[in-house]
């Protein structure tokens, strides 16, 4: 393609934005609203995913070792646990250590547990983590059957519930985002269809005087691209600003363990890029869908 042609396509596509003022405004608004919704949704989803990961990673299996086990038995048990392919790490914690942790976790009142220091009722523990958090239950059930295992603890019931809740939330999110994107594409392709319809005489003349289909398509391709990209600006900027402020305001106040927001950098740049790409794709796709039927000979 000649440089002049490219310049012409650029100029035509930009001019057409101005010429079809109201349609341009409508298209950009459609992209803006959609991307704003998608953007907010993505931010929430990514953060939820982040919490979920944190919580999941905190899930561990506590294997209480039978009091009758001697050093050798403990080593054998450790070897058995380590042999399970899903196991990532295993840490030993003696009953003295366990008691100390217990006392510490109760703070002031914990001192009353000191009584047990002479006759510790707790057992030695192996703390096991799995490669994938979702394997926890399976691995715990397996360990339960080993010899010298007194009891296995992984927050039975609660863990299962947490995992299934997260899974449902994630799936609902994905379905909603896909639905939203399709709605936007439909809206935009219709809007651009009207833009192109307003220019059908131009296309008719182009075809009459011998312009190729490729040539005719270019300005519409670019116009769609601009619509998508311009439509992405407001959502990106507003999400950046709002997230920055929420992050600054909320981050110091969150004291609940594992719950933390994704840091502004690089998360916000990723979101911006995603929104920009979505905008561009939606715009181009919409205009290409619409121009197709005008180019049938």
């Amino acid at each position: 393609m000649r440089l002049n042609t490219l310049k012409r396509h650029m100029r035509e596509s930009v001019k057409s934005l101005g010429r079809n003022g109201w349609m341009t405004f409508a298209s950009i608004s459609a992209v803006t609203v959609t991307l704003l919704l998608v953007g907010v949704f993505l931010v929430v989803m990514f953060n939820m995913n982040h919490f979920a990961k944190k919580i999941e990673n905190d899930v561990e299996i506590r294997v209480h070792i039978d009091v009758t086990a001697n050093e050798q038995d403990k080593q054998a048990l450790r070897a058995q646990i380590e042999a399970i392919p899903e196991v990532k790490e295993i840490r030993y914690s003696s009953k003295e250590q366990e008691l100390k942790n217990l006392i510490k976790s109760f703070g002031e009142e914990g001192s009353s547990f000191r009584l047990f220091e002479q006759d510790n009722p707790l057992s030695d523990v192996y703390v096991v983590k799995t490669e994938k958090p979702t394997d926890t239950i399976k691995v715990a059930k397996q360990i339960e059957k080993f010899q010298f295992v007194h009891k296995v603890n992984y927050g039975q019931g609660q863990v299962e519930k947490l995992f299934s809740t997260l899974k449902v939330a994630r799936n609902i999110g994905i379905v909603l985002i896909i639905g939203l994107l399709f709605t936007a594409m439909f809206l935009i392709s219709n809007t651009i269809k009207i833009t192109i319809f307003a220019r059908r005489r131009e296309i008719e003349i182009m075809r009459l005087v011998g312009a190729t289909n490729g040539f005719i398509r270019w300005p519409f391709f670019l116009e769609g691209l601009w619509l998508g990209v311009i439509g992405a600006i407001f959502p990106i900027v507003s999400i950046l600003v709002v997230y920055y402020n929420i992050y600054k305001f909320l981050e110091p106040k969150i004291t609940v363990p594992f719950i933390e927001l994704l840091p502004f950098n690089p998360f916000m740049w990723q979101i911006s890029l995603i929104l920009l790409l979505f905008g561009a794709c939606i715009g181009v796709w919409g205009s290409m869908m619409s121009v197709r039927r005008f180019l049938k000979v």
Binding site: N4, T5, R8, I205, M206, V209, G210, A211, F215
Partner: peptide, 11 residues
């Protein structure tokens, strides 16, 4: 000019 521009004639 439109008729020539769209067949990529030089300015």
């Amino acid at each position: 000019a439109f008729a020539l521009e769209v067949i990529e004639e030089s300015p």
